[in-house]
Amino acid sequence: MAEMIALSRLTKRFGPLTAVDGIDMKVSRGEVLGFLGPNGAGKSTTMKMVTGFLAPTGGSALVDGIDVTVDPVKAKQRIGYLPEGAPCYGDMTPRGFLNFIADVRALSGKERDKAIDETIERVEIAGVLDQPIETLSKGFKRRVGLAQAILHNPPVLILDEPTDGLDPNQKHQVRTLIQEMAADKAVVISTHILEEVEAVCTRAVVIARGKILADGTPEDLLKRSPLHNAVHVRVAAAAAAAVEGDLKALSVVGAVIREQAGNGYCEFSVTSKSGAPIAPDVAALLKDKGHPVSDLKTEKGALDAVFREITRGPDKKPAEAPHA
């Protein structure tokens, strides 16, 4: 079965607050799904329901075809889960902790030794195996948490903010690790670091206020940016007015935004009317007209701008009528 996670109308209410509001989502093997959203959007709550920690108020969550609320133990056997903040038993050593997890995961014999050795190597914690976890640095703690999640080589891997609080090297390491393991697993990572989505995810789902607002590849999301394929041009201030006029006349150009002038230079953001690449046209034009250009680059569009636009979208619309 390729579909490893299937959520249908999944809902969670805490009293009057609806944290997750009827989410439908499917994740297949080989996918790395980036779960995006502002704080309090319902990311963690959704993950907690999929992993069987919280009971849904409505809807269902299937993991490998098993309903999490019907047979939680069987579903949990198929999941590796790193909860937010990577909680571990602080008084245990990583070795003792992994042995405990291996016991609970019913690993035995050679398979068990192999799993433990490989995981230790993968997350690079060999040097701290016999220190109590509470004495370890944040990076090591996170890696011990990750080790716990991947120890039994689960087909479904759910990581809640796996790189939160790590330094850039450690972030890179964790991302590489996720990519290495992604081929035969369904991976869901929640994050609010957008570069992470571009770096590791094959698909991005944006949620806010408990609802899915966007679902597509990171490239799809970028295309929503008004600055997607825009060209950034820097010219001498003296030629600014002429350049602006010439650029506006170009048929593929949407808008020309003059950004700032300083040090004798002037900068423009030139957006693409259709979203298609326009850099060759702009470059050709500037060359034809003989404008000296000191810098020219294509923008992909910033994912965080798209993110802001998607997640804040409803603010601009008139408020919905309150439900009775």
């Binding site: 992993t51 939680p72 133990v73 949990k76 999941i79 909680p87 571990c88 609970v104 995961r105 716990q148």
Partner: peptide
Amino acid sequence: KSGTIELLMTLPVS
């Protein structure tokens, strides 16, 4: 308090 309950209760134990 430490949040490990989330770890424990998402392991395959009842």
